[in-house]
Design a protein around this nucleic acid. Structure first.
Lengths: 200, 200, 200, 200
DNA sequence: GATGAATGAGTATTCATTCAT
DNA sequence: TATGAATGAATACTCATTCAT
């Protein structure tokens, strides 16, 4: 809320996000982050207790922005076609995952880091970054079910997972493929259409 | 003729797999790996040029065993029911992913590592660990399609991805959830049933 | 403005010179150098990119001081006697060589080090440490030749080498003898007198 | 004197000389020496107590061969011209120094190594490798002096050093120059001629 | 005698973190 | 607040040496 201090904090968060995403948590050095933020190394420690706290801050920050975007999506129910809405949703999830994936990867390859991050306040599963979109997706399907645009015998939770899995897997395998230097494009739309047939 | 040396190599591969999975690539120290293998640190370098090569060896080793198991699964076509076969396949994929996931995570959080690993002999996407099951799955669906047990208008490649995404996402999110100390069980069977409805 | 940092750098240069001279390049450990300089090991790398650059810095530093002393000696021509001047020169060269010899030894026993040191900016032979005194010596003889105090038929370059070789060999063999625990004194003055007879 | 054992010992000495000369003592690894000798690493220790003893053996071996060549040179006195004989001598010394120089450099840059080498039996200065040629050279001059071909007022010891210094310095500076990638040719003959003028 | 697998002490270098200015 | 010099613990890797076969 104040001037100088808050500004550098934001610079640090932005710089850190980029470096963490590019290099991974372990390979990201405080030196590089400081340089990217245009501040001295010592300055990091005036704003964050240590590297882990900086990571956590980035993670929370990014996730807040993303989940805000997704949470209000169930309102689409009833408008346009189900297919259009679902494709919209799927791409939204893809964006979210693409944003969080690098941070997630860093976390999931480092048990200690993950544990430390969630140790104090074990978050509800719904709030867990990366899985967060599941809930709004289920609620959207439920809404459409009430409107009769989704079959009554569909288990919305299961269906939500089947749909969510598509952009999730697409982003993850895409990352790996790119890292390996292989073209990793996936036809998400086609895959969603398959699932759609079982739902509508 | 392959006595002492080969045995040590195996011990190292086994120990390394565990440590890499637990700590991630960067946090895994050669010291810890050597200790877990019950050998001295120097011994690692008699068997592997460096840490990266050790990781690569573990990765290839594990993946070879796993993909062997999956590749011969398309033969199931025509036997039992499609649902039984698919559930069997999905669980097989789950096993594979569960095995490779930790190494994958280690890799995908470290772009440089991944690049180095696949740089020399860029593998075809089909051989890429983690995505390898996609191909056999598609071939299985194709076989069933010819037998009339899968709808003719289904794009088998897209459907395969939709199915593959389920155990893939289940394993990955499960790992993350466990790391975060949250119960992360997913009803894979239910999700597969949703997709099945669009296929059969 | 050049306070703390510059002081530490000087301490490091001084300490490193001693350790390199005593132990040779390879046997000189960064640990010992740091200890001798009264700083931590990490500090070395804040001032020098690596051990080799530290050595190079020491080498250049020492040589700069020494060659400055010698370069202005040709001005002696015409004053005192030729013999007095030459003996003065010869002792000056002895001092220079005594200073540079340990570093030279460290270098000449390590071809890769030497190559690396001079690779980028291949210096002219005249500037090469250890041989640097040759040129001023030749110029002094030339000046005396014009004054008629050195025979006209003397090739000054050759004569300079014959004279230069005396303190050079004296210092080098002296070092070796001392290392071997043998008294290695050489009568440089007598040797110079022999050469003088062929010149005057 | 026996078959296999003695042969491998010689192979090791030859290989070691090459590697020591090329890499210097510290940079020379037992692995590389063993490979160059075409034997296994362990074999070295069947023939030499440790790396230092191997170095010592090489050093003594090489020096014995060289000094044998030089010791019998004083017999030249009276034959041909003094200049021809001296040039012949100077080139012989050059050869000796060229052979021993790398080993010498290794030694003189490593006080501990030198001390260890000469610790047990402190050799007389005359036997000290690298300075060994001084004595025969002095004796040759003395012989010529008696024959009246060298001036009576010349101090043969001093003159010997002045002459010896020329090939010594030529070889040493030549090594350094070559290492630095600079052409380091020296006109030894011209330098000797200068000294000759003071002697004949 | 010879091998080569195993050792473990040692080395240069990195990097998160601290602290005087 | 910010700096950047200093730290020191940690790390991957090397290499002379040992020893069972």
């Amino acid at each position: 809320m104040s001037g100088r201090g808050e500004a550098t904090r934001q610079q640090l968060l932005d710089a850190a996000e980029g470096v963490f995403a590019e290099r991974g948590y372990a390979r990201a050095t405080t030196k590089e982050i400081a340089k990217a933020a245009g501040v001295s190394e010592g300055t990091i420690y005036r704003h964050f207790a240590d590297k882990q706290q900086l990571f956590q801050a980035v993670f929370i920050d990014r996730n807040a922005a993303n989940s805000a975007a997704i949470t209000q999506l169930p309102d689409l129910a009833g408008k346009k076609t189900v297919r259009e809405n679902l494709l919209f949703l799927i791409h939204a999830i893809e964006d979210v995952e693409a944003n969080v994936a690098p941070l997630q990867a860093a976390m999931s390859s480092d048990a200690e880091l993950a544990a430390a991050l969630f140790s104090s306040a074990g978050p509800a599963r719904a709030e867990m970054p990366g899985v967060a979109p599941l809930e709004p997706l289920a609620r959207y399907l439920e809404a459409e079910q009430k409107l009769g645009r989704v079959r009554a015998d569909v288990d919305v939770a299961r269906a939500a997972f089947a749909l969510f899995a598509i952009p999730f897997a697409a982003v993850m395998t895409g990352r790996m493929a790119r890292a390996a230097g292989v073209p990793g494009d996936v036809d998400m739309v086609g895959a969603v259409d398959v699932v759609l047939k079982g739902i509508e």
